[in-house]
Write a protein that binds this DNA or RNA. Sequence first.
DNA 1: AGTTTATGTTAACCTAGATTAAGAGATTTT
DNA 2: AAAATCTCTTAATCTAGGTTAACATAAACT
Lengths: 192, 192
Amino acid sequence: MSTHNKLFNNIRRYVSLSDEEKAGIIEICTESRIKKRQFIEQPGYVSGYRNYVIKGAFRSFFLSNEGKEHTVQIAIDDWFVSDFYSYITQTPATLFVEALEDSLILRMPYGKIEPLCKQYHSLSEYFRVTTEKAFAYSRNRTLSNISKSAEERYLEFLGMYPDMAQRIPQKIIASYLGISPEFLSKIKKNLT
Amino acid sequence: MSTHNKLFNNIRRYVSLSDEEKAGIIEICTESRIKKRQFIEQPGYVSGYRNYVIKGAFRSFFLSNEGKEHTVQIAIDDWFVSDFYSYITQTPATLFVEALEDSLILRMPYGKIEPLCKQYHSLSEYFRVTTEKAFAYSRNRTLSNISKSAEERYLEFLGMYPDMAQRIPQKIIASYLGISPEFLSKIKKNLT
DNA sequence: AGTTTATGTTAACCTAGATTAAGAGATTTT
DNA sequence: AAAATCTCTTAATCTAGGTTAACATAAACT
């Protein structure tokens, strides 16, 4: 299956595309191979792309004043990843986006997506509906962060993203949950 | 100014509407007066509306197993408020949405917004762009929650929503920040 | 106006989770 | 394959923030 078809299969879950629209999308995408540990975004640079993960794994994270890493998002196959705040506001990023595995992505530039959304109703609908969904899920995470214990959040994470638990190093999962790796170790011990 | 015009002014910041589109939107909105302390959404019932606050204040909150309240969102004039997860997935709500003042809202039913977004490209664009923006800001809150101290989050809140600090009871702000009201009291004392 | 009920403050004590440090396994690099 | 560099675990100690309780204020109801 071509890389574009992987994206189209995803889009097809929400809207149907004409051949003209497909051609328009193919035209703005560029395929890119990313090596493990490579950064595709860094603080200081404006995030110029929606990055669709064809195959691989990424995380976005943030370096606190004390030099500690905080993982904001973990993305595997068929997720979009970027410093979304930077992308949307077109202001310099505060997040790193780093490949956790050798990966293959499609990059869709902001400057081309926006006109294309204005031009094609179905593309606008696709991003409207998927962003609404992403936002709804992110609300749930906010809710967990303010109301649940670290152990409860870990169990929730396992239930929600079982594939990631296998694939992603624990210290990154800990930093996604907002706890120290040592404490995650303790939690896992308590669970068995 | 009519209540619909207040909404149209907001929409105009992102897209322009034809008269036909305006009429279509007016047709699906119903105006509603809500008394202080009244609930417009409750756990167990599917959230059927995007509620646009013309005038007033609301919060959405969640009751933990231990019976504690956790405020997810605070909304004043010109914000939308609902149990967004319930609205998007059309599954029963887990949140309450409660008026903090006597308020006036426009209710836009899910079953009518969705077809209208399919029909009118500009309305689809409006919700795409505003939801993308809301999502970007919500990412920032997630980030604060996992990386900042309670005092830092309080200062950030003050900077971001200075009007709310005046208008909203402190115990609700505390529950929005994910801390106890007593601890917020302590923080405020330390700051002066 | 006076009584109830909700909100905010202060202080003493208590826990979830952080930090530090040291050792054991894994992975990478040479 | 050894050396170097990460990742994970365990245990001791420490701290941000929670809990409880008592009192002070301010709203809301009669």
